[in-house]
Design a protein around this nucleic acid. Structure first.
Lengths: 261, 261
DNA sequence: TGTTCGAGACGAACAGTGTTCTACGCGAAC
DNA sequence: GTTCGCGTAGAACACTGTTCGTCTCGAACA
């Protein structure tokens, strides 16, 4: 996606390509038409929306979402935070751009195949979790807004495709289109919590062991279930089993709403 | 829960009741034993952890999570933010107390009934969503940590009970004990996003209408699925249908892992 | 070639945040 | 009656997003 497409998606300029600007939520009065801003070549320093998003992703990957401040991104570009506001309306807009950039890395399945639609659905959700997990705690930012950027649309398009291959009713497909990414994002967020704290893997394992002991040591008269399930409750937190379990539950539930269920 | 139990759960004093302190995640070196702080009757102003949590919940309900600052809570108690630090280690600890207070409002089902365990599971998840939704955007804070307070344990205990009535395998129950609250919390969070922005109901409906038109107007050659599903994709966002759909999918998926599935 | 013009860069500043430091005052104990 | 020390609370620190106003410099025009 080039610079013009970005500006157009954000509604900054007149739509020059075929994709209309996504509806944006504003609190105040509707702003006046910002259409007739003439296109200029950049002066002095080559500061552009592209370069800013690039720098933001760099900061995000290296130091996490909390370090992604306007000043820090500006510093990455050898300037101050105030300079970004000529290319980006505010931090919210920058985050939306970063999110859609990240979602653009999604690996989507090819042609929808009715014979293996369930596995294809899982592939999309797995890819979403993987992409979000690859960029530190970006999942936290994704949870706080509904992605409507072009790359998010591309993902929805593919997801609907494979769900349709499963022969599910339209309304089921539509709801699933929210539910499945919600699961991927929420899971990625939970998993990012620990590495955000800077925990090493063995530290995390030790903490989970503490929780297991805590559960097991609970008074059995008040917490018999938690105490007896201390082991299973704290199992599978390090790898993919927990995630795969939830994914399986979701797809099984969806399949039960289809023609074969 | 009284003040001593709170302090004990947080590991501030020697355990006096039967519930041992929950494992807390700390980054730095393990702190020295803070056990031998003598109990004193309060001086001057009657500032206590209880009163602080009360005030925090009041601020949360009235003005939302973003307004829940240390200074604002202090102001609610006719003092400054610094005064709270004598009773609460930091904002994180205050949030944990607030969260467990809120979770304490959960209405849990009675005796687990194998004949209607699925409906009982749904009741727990519905109650979770309702309680979180009743306290503005507290769900955002719940997503960011794993609740291990006494009231959260009470909820897990009840949830495991009804899942056991369903005859599910132990590991399925354990994973479901994470998955179901995750769904309730993530849903409550998404729903809180709009009211956090201060949107009225008709404003929200208008915005959803904008999104529907945006979907419908997308180029059909690139986004045929999204364009044709514009209606269903944006349906049911105002009420409970979306939530109930996801809940049904989850419970169906869980049931398929049980003895009858 | 000289001038004008204005968009963009950017330092300073503002109102916030969580947290720490420090001095002060009051209630209980000896 | 004095002393002791805990809890209070104001000031301050480092940080945030954002705005304001100044200044610079490249392009367009005469």
């Amino acid at each position: 996606m080039d610079d013009d497409a970005i500006a157009e998606w954000l509604g900054h300029r007149k739509p020059a390509s075929e994709l209309p600007p996504a509806p944006r939520l504003r609190r105040g009065e509707p702003d006046s038409d910002p259409a007739d801003r003439p296109t200029r070549t950049p002066r002095r320093r080559t500061l552009s929306t592209q370069a800013i998003v690039d720098a933001a992703v760099r900061v995000l990957d290296a130091e996490g979402l909390d370090a992604l401040t306007m000043r820090r991104v500006g510093q990455e570009l050898d300037t101050g935070g105030a300079s970004l506001y000529a290319h980006v309306a505010n931090k919210e807009e920058l985050l939306e751009l970063v999110i859609d950039r990240v979602i653009g890395e999604l690996e989507l399945p090819g042609e929808p195949d009715p014979a293996r639609w369930e596995e294809q659905v899982k592939e999309v959700v797995r890819s979403t979790r993987a992409v979000l997990g690859a960029h530190r705690d970006i999942a936290r930012a994704c949870l706080a807004r509904i992605p409507l950027g072009p790359n998010a649309l591309r993902g929805s398009e593919a997801l609907i495709g494979v769900l349709r291959a499963g022969g599910l009713p339209d309304q089921v497909i539509a709801y699933a289109c929210d539910l499945l990414p919600l699961y991927a994002t929420a899971t990625a967020y939970e998993e990012s919590l620990f590495e955000t704290l800077g925990l090493e893997h063995d530290q995390l394992m030790r903490h989970i062991g503490d929780i297991r002991e805590y559960f097991a040591a609970l008074p059995v008269d008040r917490f018999p279930n938690v105490a007896s399930l201390a082991g299973p409750l704290t199992a599978g937190s390090g790898g993919d089993e927990r995630f795969e379990f939830g994914l399986d539950v979701l797809v099984r539930g969806l399949a039960s709403l289809g023609p074969g269920g």
